[in-house]
């Protein structure tokens, strides 16, 4: 059976990279004795697919992964077994059976972040936000395999709110995410710096939720609409 689960990773476990998270889950499934199906072929790999890579330094409450198991499990038993085998700081919080054939990575279209910052100059958060939102284009440079590329992130910033006090504060932003047009928090910050000219330093990043889009709504990946076999 295929299970899609949501998991969280807290501050204490955010100092490892995406490959480490993948390995952590592979080992946890082994410890939990939840038999993961493996790919066929020369180098059999366990069928665990993550919706979006988790860069080092990012905590999150809204990550998703699909796992293909060789046996059927009650979803609550699955969660119980898996969590008993996960180290402190990472926790599976929701599990649904999936019959969809769609690759989970292709569903992700947006992500909501809370990004904490220190601003070197005191500046009004509302004016920063309205400045960013009033721009037509915000050109940043994105590193690609063939050097740096110009990248307009303005259309990929969907929402910004925020609060600030005495030079520290946070943004709550909804950014385009996924396999295409992924805007990482660093890139968003770069954009803020470029269009406001304010010296602003990111101190913490937290992913609140990954979303897919259906029926004109942003929906978490465990929404029924993403779990059913595609028509």
């Amino acid at each position: 059976m295929k299970i899609r689960f949501r998991f969280e990773r807290s501050e204490e476990l955010k100092y490892i990279g995406h490959l480490d998270v993948m390995r952590l889950f592979e080992r946890a499934f082994k410890r939990a004795e939840l038999p993961v199906a493996h790919s066929q072929g020369f180098n059999p790999r366990p069928h665990i697919v993550f919706a979006q890579p988790m860069p080092l330094g990012l905590s999150s409450s809204g990550e998703f992964a699909d796992v293909e198991l060789e046996k059927r499990y009650e979803l609550n038993i699955f969660l119980e077994k898996l969590n008993a085998a996960l180290p402190d700081g990472i926790k599976a919080v929701d599990a649904r059976e999936s019959t969809s054939n769609r690759n989970i990575m292709s569903i992700v279209e947006a992500a909501r972040y809370r990004i904490d910052f220190n601003a070197m100059q005191s500046s009004d958060i509302d004016s920063i936000i309205s400045k960013v939102l009033s721009e037509k284009r915000i050109i940043v440079f994105k590193k690609t395999k063939s050097g740096e590329k110009e990248f307009d992130i303005r259309p990929l910033i969907y929402e910004i709110t925020g609060e600030a006090n005495d030079g520290t504060g946070f943004f709550n932003v909804l950014l385009s995410s996924g396999q295409h047009n992924n805007v990482r928090p660093e890139l968003f910050f770069e954009g803020v710096r470029i269009c406001t000219g304010i010296d602003i330093e990111m101190t913490k990043m937290h992913r609140i939720m990954l979303y897919g889009r259906a029926e004109n709504k942003w929906l978490p990946l465990t929404d029924e609409r993403f779990l059913q076999r595609d028509l």
């Binding site: 592979e26 080992r27 946890a28 499934f29 082994k30 410890r31 004795e33 085998a85």
Partner: peptide, 8 residues
């Protein structure tokens, strides 16, 4: 060790 670590 296999059971307690999950090593591959």
């Amino acid at each position: 060790a296999i059971e307690k670590t999950g090593y591959e």
